Structures are given as structure tokens and as C-alpha cells.
Simulated scan of single mutants.
Amino acid sequence: MDHVVVIGAGQAGASCVAKLRNGGFEGDITLIGAETAPPYQRPPLSKAYLMGDMPLERLFLRPEAFYADQDISLRLGTEVSAIDTDAQTVTAGGEQLRYSDLVLATGSVPRRLPAAIGGDLDGVFVVRDLTDVDAMAPRFVTGARVLIVGGGYIGLEAASVASKLGLEVVLVEMADRILQRVAAPETSDYFRALHAEHGVDIREGVGLDRLIGEGAVSGAALSDGSTLDVDFVIVGVGIAPGTALAEAAGLTIDNGIATDAQGRTSASHVWAAGDCASFPYRGARIRLESVPNAIDQAECVAENIIGAGKDYVARPWFWSDQYDVKLQIAGLNTGYTHVVTRDGGAAKSFWYFKDGTLLAVDAANDPRGYMIGKRLIEAGKSPDADVIADPSSDLKALLK
């Protein structure tokens, strides 16, 4: 009997098992998750859920009964300790499961501060799963002092929630500017001004030397010689692909679990999808940390297990919610040479070009700009920069 085992009950794992059944797979399916909650959405964790605007049940991707109804064995609170690719077995919760195909949807793990600089003190948090958010939620009280380490999207989203709830927020970013790794200076400027309007103290070019406290964090010493009194700390310094199991099993690792265009890893009958997987893209190898990628790649793997034989075609897009601003990002800006700003007042977008080729768009409260930019990128069309820069121009005409 065919038996597909999926390790990782996040967005990619849940999407994979649902697609298998939807696609007509009639064998056994087992979905294994380390957490005790059924598969849930992660983006609202640090926003609507943390603010109390979304109850736990609304986080769930599907009602828990779905898995039983679809004859999917859902094993929660279960750690996988080993994979044997020769015997085609997985050791989970002390039990050995044999698979005909194995899907690794092991996601990513947050980078933490070293214990040597106070990273293990009580009151130091990362934002990754329900346990993290449930642990920090009681600290979000008016007047509390929070230090956020890292000026990427995770850190900025945490800052916006903390500010809205009335906390005193200091954010430090070691690089010259916030979002330096992922966005142009124009996008950084936009969000720096937005956070300043809401009272967030952003300090760029300033690192964390060490946290201060006996058992629990009470302060921080910064690289510019200043010190802060803090009640708690949120660390948002990036994530790493969850490759430990794959490495131990001898799979090829290259900025994640390396797959071919269809999602196969270096081991027979073993596939990977989501944050943990790197794959071929336009002559290079990339890894995408996003919900859309987790869904699309996992569904492609499911179809290929059934026999579709199709390559995964990535259409990179991302989003971030901060205050009343929804940022939507289409494409990848790697290698851009210049940025064109389209300023429509409340709606603003930043268009990345490599010479004359459109690579990506950052659209802030500009859904039309995002939608049209996304369609242009997917079609391989590059508009005239002067047309983009003129807020009175008809963007839709560019699609014709």
C-alpha cells in the first residue's frame, strides 16, 4: 500500500496532504507535526492574534475534523528523530513508519541571540509559533518598555503591534538602515517615517552588545555605548531553513534542502517544499520564505507524487501589515540598478528595474500598482519608467 509521510504540519505540509487527497491519491497519508495545535496560519500570529483580534480557532487552516474526514492521520506533538532513506522509514515518537514517498516540509527556525550576551534570559522572545506568541502576549501592556532587535519585516511588524498597544518601543538595527537586506532605500525611508509617526524609536547602525539582568532581562547595552531599561525583548534577526533532519539523513543541502525543479531531493522518493527547500529559478538556486510559496510548491510536489511530472514555476510575492499600511511585494529585486517611485499620495509604490527590465514592485496601500506590477513581471513586460513615475498615468493600459 502506498503511504505518503509528510514531516512538518505547517502551511506547506497541510497544503501537500490536502492536495494529495484532492488529486485522487488513495493510499495512506500521515502528517506529523511537533506542535500540539493542528496546522495554522503563521502571519496573523504576531498581528491579529497577538492583539486579541483573532481567536485561536480562526488561526487553523482547516477544522481539525477535516483530517479525519479525509482519512489523513494527523500526528501532533510528535518529534521525528530519524529518517532512513535506504529503508524508506521515519522514526517518529519512538515508532517506525515506512513510506513510499516522504515530503519534508520542516519550515524554518528563528535565529536566537547567543546565551553569552543574555539570549537565554527570561523575557527574551522570538516570533515563530503559537508558544512564542502566547508566552509574550501578557507582556504587551500599556507603558511597558520593549526592545526589538532587528529591523526586518518581523521586527517592524512587532514594533507596529507594540506601538498600537501603547508600549514604549525601541528598535535597533545593526545595518545602516532598516530593511537593508530586502528592500531599496526608498522603501526603508517610507517605513522609517511611518514608525516615527507612531512614536517608535528606531536606531540604525546600532547593534546590541549584551542584555542585562539576573535571570530575567532588565536592560540592554548597545554598541554606541548607550544603555536601555527594558521589560522584555523581541528578537527578529532572521530565520534559517529547517534542515537538521535532512542533513542527518545525508541529503544535499544548499541554502536549504536542495531539490530539482519538480521538488525531488537528492534521495529517492524524498521531496521537500516550503521555507526549508531551495530550488532552481532562472539559472540560479533560491529559497522563498513566504506563505504563497509554501502553498504552491507543496501542491506541486503533491501532484508530482501522483505522477504529474511538472516543474514548479515560482511567482514570488509577499506582504507585510504595519499600522494601517498593507505592503504587497511582487517579484524579486535581486540585482536591481535603480528604483522608480510612484507617489499617489496615500498609495505609494517602488518599482525595481535592472537597467530597463522590471524585477519587482513594493506597493504600500497600492493594490492596483501591486496587481499590475505582478502581472507585468509574470508576463515578462517592462514598462517605461516615466509612465510609472507619473501618478496620473493609466497603469492598466500597460497590460495591453
Rank of each mutant, 00 (worst) to 15 (best):
70 Q>W: 05
384 D>C: 07
134 D>A: 06
269 H>W: 08
3 H>K: 07
372 I>G: 03
350 F>T: 01
32 I>Q: 05
154 I>T: 13
327 L>C: 03
222 L>P: 05
28 D>W: 11
243 T>I: 15
319 W>Q: 01
163 S>W: 03
266 S>N: 06
243 T>H: 06
146 V>Q: 08
215 G>P: 11
194 L>H: 00
258 A>Q: 08
133 V>R: 02
224 D>V: 07
309 G>C: 14
58 R>S: 05
290 S>W: 14
371 M>V: 13
211 L>I: 09
215 G>M: 15
318 F>N: 00
227 T>I: 13
256 G>T: 09
242 G>V: 09
96 Q>L: 04
322 Q>I: 02
56 L>E: 11
347 A>G: 04
169 V>F: 11
306 I>K: 11
347 A>L: 01
349 S>D: 04
72 I>R: 03
303 E>R: 15
247 E>W: 13
147 L>Y: 09
171 L>K: 04
239 I>Q: 00
306 I>C: 09
349 S>V: 05
51 M>Q: 14
192 R>L: 14
46 S>G: 10
260 D>L: 15
142 T>I: 08
342 R>S: 01
210 R>N: 12
89 T>D: 00
319 W>R: 06
305 I>K: 00
344 G>W: 12
373 G>Q: 06
88 Q>H: 12
351 W>P: 04
155 G>N: 12
112 R>V: 11
35 E>H: 14
25 F>K: 11
270 V>R: 01
253 I>N: 10
308 A>T: 03
382 S>V: 06
92 A>I: 09
186 E>C: 07
172 V>F: 08
370 Y>R: 01
78 T>N: 02
297 Q>R: 12
365 N>S: 03
344 G>I: 11
321 D>R: 14
257 I>H: 08
257 I>K: 07
153 Y>S: 01
249 A>P: 10
324 D>Y: 09
43 P>Y: 14
136 M>V: 13
349 S>K: 02
308 A>S: 12
138 P>R: 03
216 A>D: 06
269 H>R: 15
51 M>H: 11
113 L>C: 05
211 L>P: 02
131 T>D: 09
223 S>Y: 12
21 R>G: 04
224 D>G: 03
220 A>M: 06
293 N>V: 05
12 A>F: 13
34 A>K: 13
145 R>E: 10
275 D>K: 05
164 K>I: 04
172 V>H: 02
76 L>A: 03
